[in-house]
Nucleic acid binder design. Structure first.
Lengths: 218, 218
DNA sequence: CGGGCTATTGATTCCAGTCAATACTCGTGG
DNA sequence: CCACGAGTATTGACTGGAATCAATAGCCCG
């Protein structure tokens, strides 16, 4: 949807390689970025250097909106795979907005979506057990892949257990343990970064795994 | 004269009484609201009826932006005190935006601020202990009061322990216990809803309270 | 092959949730 | 006025889930 170019305005594309930083916290804000292809992570880094991952943007997602209000980026974006980004200089956005207000509206909409996503994530974090968080994470990832036309049942994780943990508010070992547990429960198969989803409907609504017994069927 | 009207556009004001709902989740989206006076809470309600509080908006904060992208509000806003809100019909925003793009920019900015706040909250939830969360909550509240010209050291909580817990991802009893602990540590005084802040600088940066000893001085 | 990173698995600790009892506040009506 | 009850807050005892500490094993790449 956010193929802004159809509106008659051309934007520059940039390519980034794995590990490359798109912008850093505290750096002066000048542009928004829309993911055209590839896979990134955005994170906040606190005074002590702990990084908290706030999202794994993919095609169609927007980066850098948290820079608008203070004129400096508040977060950091790093490419996890080679990626292509559409650069939208904020000045241009403002200019173009004068002639085509729908364009600014489009940005409002994407921001609104991002805010809502962030809130859901927040709620999940508060009210769900570690198991439910991991289950939902996999389920959501599956949905996002599906939306982009990839397989929703077989995919490769682009991030480490560590990063998943830093996204879900869990320790690395907990993520690992829970993935094993989900596998033993027959809901998924895990082999390192390769994932198969067997029971998406169970993952989506899981609250807690039944206390471990040998039952494979309920 | 509230902020936006200086731009030559008049907006309707509405008043709400304590407990009154401004909008409900899933209700069709039509307007944004800016708090002119008073004190509200916004929350998400899940399938099971659990409510997760996502914010306590005060003067200058914006409500309803999460409704833009799906044309229905995704959250619920309730007044905690009598409050006055500026109603900005979204249609009008779009109209006015055509003549005055700065106006839409203003909205972008407030949304950006809200997104950043939400993220910080999210990080706090992931990486801080219960004690640090409560300490930061009080410290932040203090700052917000100060920004509005009220006392930053003496104030009255408008929300219950239950609501604080639902905002911070903690049980009500935990909030209560920690406030007592902070009091015994000499950082604040608590008497039901009345709060005095004694050591704001400690609250702001606290990670963990030292294991309880009888020492009143370090 | 060796070194570094990542993942799995086990043992133990401890923070915060749950359950439960008591006390405080406030509004209403006998 | 006091009694009563509903909502809110404090405090204690106990439990359990996830973190931490720690050891081993698998993977990738020079």
């Amino acid at each position: 949807m956010p193929c802004f170019e159809q509106e008659g305005v051309k934007f520059q594309h940039i390519k980034v390689v794995p590990g490359q930083r798109v912008f850093t916290a505290a750096q002066p804000f000048d542009s928004l970025y829309v993911v055209h292809s590839g896979f990134l992570k955005t994170m906040l880094v606190d005074e002590l250097g702990n990084e908290q991952i706030v999202g794994f943007p993919m095609k169609g997602d927007i980066l850098g909106v948290d820079g608008i209000h203070r004129k400096t980026y508040q977060s950091e974006a790093v490419a996890m795979t080679s990626s292509e980004l559409v650069v939208i200089p904020f000045k241009t956005l403002v200019e173009v907005g004068k002639r085509m207000p729908e364009f600014e509206l489009e940005v409002l909409t994407v921001m609104s979506r991002e805010l809502a996503r962030q809130r859901r994530q927040f709620v999940a974090l508060c009210s769900l057990s570690a198991e439910a968080r991991v289950a939902r994470f996999l389920s959501t990832l599956s949905d996002r892949y599906a939306a982009l036309g990839y397989s929703s049942t077989e995919f490769t994780l682009r991030m480490t257990r560590q990063e998943i943990g830093r996204y879900l508010g869990l320790a690395l070992v907990t993520v690992s343990r829970i993935m094993q547990a989900l596998q033993h429960a027959g809901l998924i198969s895990v082999d390192q970064k390769a994932i198969s989803i067997h029971r998406p409907e169970v993952l989506r609504t899981m609250r807690r795994l039944p206390p471990k017994t040998g039952f494979a069927h309920e």
